[in-house]
Design a protein around this nucleic acid. Structure first.
Lengths: 209, 209
DNA sequence: TAATAATATCACTATTTAGTGACTTTGTGT
DNA sequence: ACACAAAGTCACTAAATAGTGATATTATTA
């Protein structure tokens, strides 16, 4: 007769699988994608690497499963769109950009994923870019496109520059050094200047585009 | 008696060193920084890896020398600053941003270096960031700081966002996929929209900051 | 042209890493 | 309690890579 699957005992397949997935997250956060090697992952999980092959098929499949198990775009989700928007979304979008600037700064795991995406061609990583686009489309189509109408593409171009700027500034701050254009992006003062600049640019766009 | 250094013969230390440096550039361009291994570099140069240790001390020092031998900022160098500026540098800066957008797009080697800098902790890579800052400072101190005066830091913050945006948009286009905020950044149309946006944002900054 | 110093190669060791076959341990149903 | 399947470990192989000592080749100068 077949055995039941252990769930609350010391030896549980599901719990072990989760430990591997957690180990991937931990290594990614602390050492980056380049350190995601079988031996290291197994050691971090406190289990034998053989199990990675047994449960996932290999490191690649484990990484794929990790990526699809995470929701990296939760902070830009469509559900956050307020119901009543009267200003073409200016306040909402400004808040979103400023929030995103801090979110990326604080979230080292997110930064590593951004880098991972730029450095490796993995289908599950490509899917992340698509998810991001899908989430962005919600906001663009529902809020800004109707407001900017025939200028909607011009607005999208500005949004693209701001989002990309937010990403790269934070990556550069973490990995290259904190000075960018003479501003110290690790200091409150420097970061405040960037936020003011973001607000200013959004303002100008809503005023004069 | 000591021998003269061979220069125009088949066996020349200087020429061999250059072949190693060229090999680094070639590998970087075609395979990325992750493929920069001694064996591969030596094979690409068509020479024995032992010489890398003999001439440079090791792979790290070779890479260091490669990086300092490249001047990726020649297109933003101080010499290009025009003598007569009457508009606070608006035209000059706009042109520089637009040029840089195309330069980064076309120059895959530069893109790899940007990624390399974000992915590895190497002192000479940090030094490159400092050089970049030094070149940027020339422009900021000589042109925009005097114009924006007490607002010069606010201008610098805007410039930081634009430069960072230019970098990330092009990296994302090459490695993630060409769609960003619904714009196809590999199409002439999409890239034109970004350029218009850059011009618009610089315009607004000079008008209303 | 013979001596010799600079240039270059080769064959080897040591280390790291992915992957696997043989084994042990643990939990569950009868 | 005991059979046995699932969970887990261990020790090994194979491949890739960094680094080096011994040796060969070439160019220069006496």
């Amino acid at each position: 007769m077949e055995k039941k699957i252990a769930a609350n005992t010391a030896r549980s397949k599901e719990k072990s699988k989760q430990r591997f997935l957690d180990a991937v997250g931990k290594i990614l956060k602390t050492k980056g994608y380049a350190a995601l090697k079988v031996n290291d992952i197994a050691a971090t999980a406190g289990l034998d690497k053989k199990l990675i092959y047994k449960y996932f098929g290999g490191t690649d499949q484990l990484l794929d499963q990790y990526i699809s198990s995470q929701d990296f775009w939760s902070n830009v989700k469509g559900e956050k769109i307020p119901q009543t928007i009267t200003d073409g979304g200016k306040d909402f979008l400004t808040g979103m950009f400023l929030e995103q600037f801090d979110y990326v700064y604080k979230n080292k795991e997110f930064q590593k994923v951004l880098l991972w995406r730029l450095s490796q061609q993995r289908n599950s990583l490509k899917k992340l870019a698509e998810d991001q686009e899908a989430n962005g489309e919600l906001i663009l189509q529902n809020i800004t496109d109707p407001y900017f109408k025939e200028k909607s593409e011009d607005y999208r171009a500005i949004a693209a520059i701001l989002v990309a700027g937010i990403y790269y500034l934070n990556l550069s701050t973490t990995y290259n050094g904190s000075i960018f254009c003479g501003l110290d992006l690790k200091s409150d003062h420097g970061r405040e200047k960037i936020k003011n600049a973001l607000s200013f640019l959004v303002d100008q766009t809503y005023e004069n585009l």
